[in-house]
Design a protein around this nucleic acid. Structure first.
Length: 545
DNA sequence: ACATCGGACTCAGAAAGATTATG
DNA sequence: ACATAATCTTTCTGAGTCCGATG
C-alpha cells in the first residue's frame, strides 16, 4: 500500500491514508470490526494493541466520529482550538494566576487568545474516598496486643495491606513507613513501639483477608447489585460538559491516602501519603457554571478558578512530591484528541525533515566545538536508539537517567565501534543494549568519557533545554520526544507495510500485527516485569505470549 | 538577556478487576 | 458444569517531557 523507499515518505503517506480512514469513521457511527480492518490490511487497533501510546495508526483510528468533527476541522492550523467561536455569555478574560480571583480583564483588551482551550466548562467536582472506619484489630508488639487509635490504626493497616509484597523487604520502605507510623502514635505508645521488627501486623492482615474473602464469596447477584448502586453514586462525577459537549472524566476520584509506592529505588517509598481534603483541591469551572457543593459539610474547596487556558477540571498538590495532580477528561475526549493529533502531525512533519536533520547532526560530529559535538552525539543516540532526552532529577527521586543524563558508568565502549548501554530509565526500567554505532560517534564518546569518573555526566556540556532549543531551530515545534513518536510510528509502518506479509487468515494476521507491535515495544524499551507469583519462562518477553 | 522554575501535559508499569480458557 | 488459572482490560498514580513565566 505504501512506498518505503526512503525515510521521508511513508509516514506522510500513511497519515494521508489514515486521515481518509478517520473521515470514513466520522461518517459512520460504528467502528470497523477487526476482521474487516485486517482484510483491508489494517488491523483494528483497539483490540490489537498492547499499548496505545506512541502508536499513531491506532490513535488516529481511535478517533471517533464525535471528536473528529471537532478536531479535524482546523487540523492544519497551529492551534486547532483557536478558531473556535466565543460563546455568547463568556466575556471573561484570561487569568494570570490560577490562584488569584482576578477575572476582570475583558477579552477585548487583548488581541486574540490563541491558548484558550474552552469557553464553558461545567462539572460536579471530584469524588473523595470514604472516611476511615476503624476496625479495632490490634497490633501485636513483642507478642502483646496494642489497641491503636484510629489514625495510627489506619496507617498500620496501610502497611498490613502491603505484607507479602517486596516493598516490605526494602530497608528504605520500612524506615520511611516506621518513621511516619510512629508520628501517628500517642507519646505513651511511641515510647514503647521502637522497632518495626517487633511489630506484628498479622491480626490486621487477617482482617483484610477476611474482607476480601467475604467479597469473593458474595453471590454474583449481590455483587452485581453493589456494582450498580456504586455506579449510580459515582455517576455525577464521571462527566463534564465542555462547550456543550458531554465528555467523560478520567480520574474523578481523589487519590486515597496510603503508603507512597515509588518505582525502583525511590528514597520516599513507604512514606505515608496523607488524605486529601477539599481545602487542598482547586476546581476549574466556567465562570457561569454552578460551583459544586463541597461534599463534606465542615469543609470548603481550596479555591475555584476559571482558567480557560488549561484543560484540567481540578487539581491539588501531591503531599509526597508536592507536584500538581490534575483531574482530566478521558482519552476519548476532544481535548485529548486534539493534542494527540497535534502530536502525530508533529511526527509527520519530522518525517519530512528527518533526512536534512540527520545530515545536519552528522556534520556536527566533526565540529571543533565540544558543545556542538555533544549535542550532535546525543541527538544521534536519541534518533537511533529512541532514548528519552533525560532531564535532571532531584535528590528526592529515584536515580534514573535518559540520554543527556547518561553517566560514564552507564556506557561501555568496545572497539572498533560498539557501545553497550546499561542504565535505569523511566520507571527504573533497565535499558540494556549493545549496538554498533557510527565510528565518528564512537570516537566522540570516547573523548567525552576520557578522564571522567564513573559518576560524571558524559554530556557535561549539554543541557536538555539547549538541545530542544536547537531542535526548534531545525523545525518549528520539534523537541526530543518527537523522535520517539516518529521512530515508533515509522517502525510500525515499515513492519506492517514492508516486504514481509502475513497469511490471509485472521489468526496469522493477528500474529503478524502483534509481532510488529512487539518490535516497536522493543525499540521503545517498553516492558513489564513478570508477575512474581507465577512460574517464569526464562528469557521470554511477557508481551510475546 | 538569560537561566531557573512552576505548571501542565503525556507517558508508563503495577495492581485490580473482568473475562475467558482449562482441566 | 465448576473451580481455578490464565489472560485481557481498566484503573491508578508515579515518572517523565517541555514550555513559558519569572526574577
Amino acid at each position: 500500500m505504501f512506498e518505503n523507499e526512503n525515510d521521508e515518505k511513508p509516514l506522510a503517506e500513511l497519515f494521508a491514508v489514515y486521515a481518509k480512514d478517520v473521515s470514513r469513521l466520522a461518517a459512520q457511527p460504528k467502528i470497523v470490526e477487526s476482521f474487516d480492518a485486517l482484510q483491508q490490511g489494517r488491523p483494528e487497533p483497539e483490540q490489537l494493541l498492547d499499548r496505545e501510546d506512541e502508536l499513531p495508526l491506532a490513535q488516529l483510528l481511535e478517533i471517533k466520529k464525535e471528536r473528529f468533527r471537532h478536531s479535524c476541522r482546523d487540523s492544519k492550523k497551529k492551534n486547532p482550538l483557536k478558531s473556535k467561536k466565543v460563546r455568547g455569555e463568556v466575556k471573561r478574560g484570561k487569568r494570570r494566576s490560577t490562584r488569584s480571583n482576578d477575572l476582570q480583564m475583558s477579552r477585548r483588551f487583548r488581541p486574540e487568545d490563541e491558548t484558550t482551550k474552552w469557553d464553558s466548562l461545567e462539572h460536579n467536582g471530584v469524588l473523595f474516598p470514604p472516611e476511615y472506619v476503624p476496625h479495632g484489630r490490634p497490633l501485636l508488639y513483642n507478642g502483646s496486643e496494642i489497641a491503636l487509635p484510629p489514625e495510627a490504626e489506619e496507617v498500620a493497616t496501610f502497611f498490613a495491606a502491603k505484607l507479602g509484597t517486596d516493598y516490605v523487604t526494602k530497608a528504605t520502605f520500612r524506615k520511611n513507613f516506621f518513621e511516619d507510623f510512629r508520628k501517628t502514635l500517642p507519646s505513651s505508645l511511641r515510647e514503647r513501639i521502637l522497632r518495626l521488627e517487633d511489630c506484628d501486623f498479622s491480626r490486621i492482615r487477617a482482617y483484610l483477608d477476611d474482607l476480601k474473602e467475604q467479597k469473593q464469596n458474595m453471590p454474583a447477584s449481590k455483587r452485581k447489585e453493589l456494582r450498580e448502586s456504586e455506579a449510580l453514586r459515582v455517576a455525577p462525577y464521571t462527566v463534564a460538559i465542555v462547550d456543550g459537549r458531554k465528555e467523560k472524566v478520567a480520574n474523578f476520584r481523589v487519590e486515597p491516602p496510603g503508603l507512597f509506592l515509588g518505582r525502583g529505588d525511590h528514597p520516599l517509598m513507604g512514606r505515608v501519603k496523607r488524605r486529601i481534603t477539599p481545602e487542598d483541591v482547586t476546581l476549574n469551572l466556567g465562570p457561569g457554571a454552578p460551583i459544586p457543593p463541597c461534599p463534606t459539610p465542615d469543609h470548603h474547596w481550596g479555591s475555584i478558578v476559571h482558567n480557560r487556558k488549561v484543560t484540567w477540571l481540578a487539581c491539588w498538590r501531591d503531599p509526597i512530591s508536592d507536584e500538581y495532580k490534575y483531574v482530566w477528561l478521558n482519552a476519548a475526549s476532544h481535548f485529548k484528541a486534539v493534542s494527540d493529533q497535534e502530536k502525530f502531525e508533529k511526527a509527520q512533519q519530522l518525517s519530512k525533515h528527518i533526512t536534512r536533520i540527520r545530515k545536519e547532526y552528522i556534520k556536527d560530529f566533526d565540529s571543533p566545538n565540544r558543545h556542538v559535538q555533544q549535542r550532535s552525539v546525543a541527538l544521534y543516540l536519541i534518533d537511533k536508539l529512541a532514548l528519552r532526552v533525560g532531564n535532571e532529577k532531584g535528590d528526592d527521586e529515584a536515580d534514573t537517567v535518559g540520554c543527556c543524563s547518561l553517566r560514564v558508568e552507564h556506557v561501555l565502549l568496545q572497539e572498533p565501534n560498539t557501545v553497550q548501554l546499561d542504565f535505569l530509565g523511566k520507571d527504573s526500567m533497565r535499558y540494556f543494549n549493545k549496538v554498533t554505532i557510527d565510528p565518528r560517534v564512537f570516537r566522540r564518546m570516547r573523548e567525552f568519557i576520557k578522564g571522567k569518573k564513573l559518576f560524571e555526566n558524559i554530556f557535561d556540556e549539554l543541557k536538555v533545554d539547549e538541545l530542544n532549543d536547537y531542535l526548534k531551530s531545525l523545525m518549528p515545534g520539534l523537541s526530543a520526544k518527537v523522535f520517539r513518536t516518529y521512530n515508533a510510528s515509522y517502525t510500525l509502518d515499515r513492519l506492517l507495510n514492508g516486504t514481509s506479509t502475513p497469511g490471509s487468515d485472521f489468526h496469522s494476521r493477528l500474529l503478524f500485527y502483534n509481532e510488529a507491535n512487539k518490535n516497536v515495544a522493543i525499540l521503545c524499551n517498553h516492558q513489564r516485569s513478570l508477575p512474581k507469583t507465577h512460574t517464569v519462562m526464562v528469557g521470554e518477553n511477557p508481551r510475546t505470549t
